[in-house]
């Protein structure tokens, strides 16, 4: 090996990634070549220096407490729900689709005018509670996998019927819309969702004597909240405006620090407000259909 060739292998050599044969070649070259010896020594010093500097950073003591706190004190009912929906379903887990979306739908202002803070707070707090597993839906809908599982256990047929996913999605939307109509006496149209997003449940929450419809979605690992408001009194002017996927998005921080309102868009006669954990990916999935 000449100097140039040896130097190509410097980093792999330092990282212990060379095979035995190449390792010996590099070592024997380093034994007789002073220039390369100096060079690799420099590389070693840099490597050491970088490692030392980065390793001086330690996590703040409060972080561990925050993490432990966030996983403690979950209500048992929610655990059951969580297990029921997410963990019983091994296929979904394996395919990496085991996580939750939260969709808060709808705030129809009837007599009282709702302040902007109220809607933001509502959206964020529902999302936060859901994320922290402090809240569970009233209406539980079976996910596609468990429906197919039941079909399988009853008929012995592995169901991969064409369009079954889409049909289930449509059925679930209808069930949720009907449930919310019965509970709130309001007509609510759910926003279209992209592939892989599933509605798994819905709730109606009473806040300030008003009924707030909430819809729960599952997609990948990122939770999301969406609120639909029927009036245009919401003031987004104080929020930061950015363009996401050719769509004007308003960003602003919600009440818990981890939550963030990331945007709103017009959908029919409603306004859809979306909140995720610092991700615009789900916003696109929710709105592209």
């Amino acid at each position: 090996m000449n100097c140039n060739k040896v130097r190509r292998y410097f980093y792999a050599f330092l990282d212990g990634e060379l095979d035995v044969e190449k390792n010996i070649e590099v070592l024997s070259h380093l034994n007789m070549c002073h220039a390369c010896g100096i060079r690799i020594e420099k590389e070693r010093v840099i490597q050491k220096r970088v490692k030392e500097t980065v390793c001086k950073v330690t996590a703040p003591a409060s972080l561990e407490q925050k993490i432990l706190k966030s996983v403690k004190g979950k209500p048992k009912v929610f655990d059951l729900w969580f297990k029921h929906f997410l963990f019983r379903n091994k296929v979904a887990l394996l395919s990496g689709l085991a996580a939750a979306l939260l969709l808060v739908v709808g705030y129809f202002v009837l007599h009282t005018k709702l302040k902007k803070e109220d809607i933001l707070y509502l959206t964020e707090s529902r999302y936060h509670d859901y994320l922290m597993k402090r809240h569970e839906p009233d209406l539980h809908l079976p996910d596609a996998e468990s429906v197919m599982g039941r079909f399988y256990s009853q008929t012995g047929l592995a169901a991969t019927l064409p369009g079954i996913e889409e049909n289930l999605q449509l059925q679930r939307s209808k069930v949720v819309a009907e449930y919310l109509r019965q509970q709130t006496n309001m007509r609510i149209s759910l926003p279209g969702v992209g592939e892989g997003v599933q509605i798994v449940g819905a709730s109606v929450l009473k806040i300030k004597n008003m009924s707030i419809p909430v819809v729960y979605y599952l997609f990948d690992n990122t939770p999301i909240t969406v609120a639909i408001v029927c009036n245009t009194n919401v003031d987004f002017k104080k929020m930061k405006e950015t363009m996401v996927d050719k769509m004007l998005v308003h960003t602003g921080t919600g009440y818990c620090g981890a939550c963030q309102i990331v945007g709103w868009k017009e959908a029919g006669n409603q306004y859809v407000m979306i909140s995720t954990l610092k991700s615009d990916k789900l916003l696109k999935i929710i709105t592209k259909v």
Binding site: V54, V57, T58, P60, L63, K66, I67, S70
Partner: peptide, 22 residues
């Protein structure tokens, strides 16, 4: 600590590093 230091160098600010590790 290991996760936090990588997170801090990736996102370059403490608040986001905190969130990322959490």
């Amino acid at each position: 600590d290991a996760l936090y230091r990588s997170a801090l160098y990736l996102v370059k600010n403490e608040h986001n590093a905190d969130d990322l590790v959490q």
